[in-house]
């Protein structure tokens, strides 16, 4: 049953990759990329149970933390065009 679950998650991952490739806007691709990241974490956890090697869960925790930070960083970049504070042209020190 772990094998069946892994196959299901892999199929979902393939569908997300398809959306990532054809998605018309950047937000579609970003949504699909987030779904792929979640699928990867789930896949790691399931694979650890399938092979009786629970060390994979630690990698899953790392992936979860990275996923969050990457998503928020990309969104902030989309919104403000930069990762720092926004440039004020009147008070620009340069």
């Amino acid at each position: 049953m772990f094998t069946a679950a892994i196959l299901g998650v892999l199929a979902a991952m393939a569908l997300a990759v398809a959306r990532c490739l054809i998605g018309p806007t950047a937000f579609d691709r970003l949504l699909a990329a987030n779904a792929i990241g979640t699928s990867a974490i789930l896949l790691l956890a399931l694979f650890g149970f399938l092979t009786d090697r629970p060390e994979f869960l630690d990698i899953g925790i790392t992936y979860a933390l990275l996923n969050v930070i990457a998503m928020l960083a990309v969104l902030k970049f989309f919104r403000y065009g930069a990762l720092g504070h926004e440039q004020d042209p009147e008070k620009d020190p340069n």
């Binding site: 069946a4 196959l7 299901g8 199929a11 979902a12 569908l15 997300a16 699909a32």
Partner: peptide, 12 residues
């Protein structure tokens, strides 16, 4: 896994 697959189908 079924619900996960449904979500991915909806994404497409």
């Amino acid at each position: 896994a079924g619900f996960y697959l449904i979500g991915a189908i909806g994404l497409n």
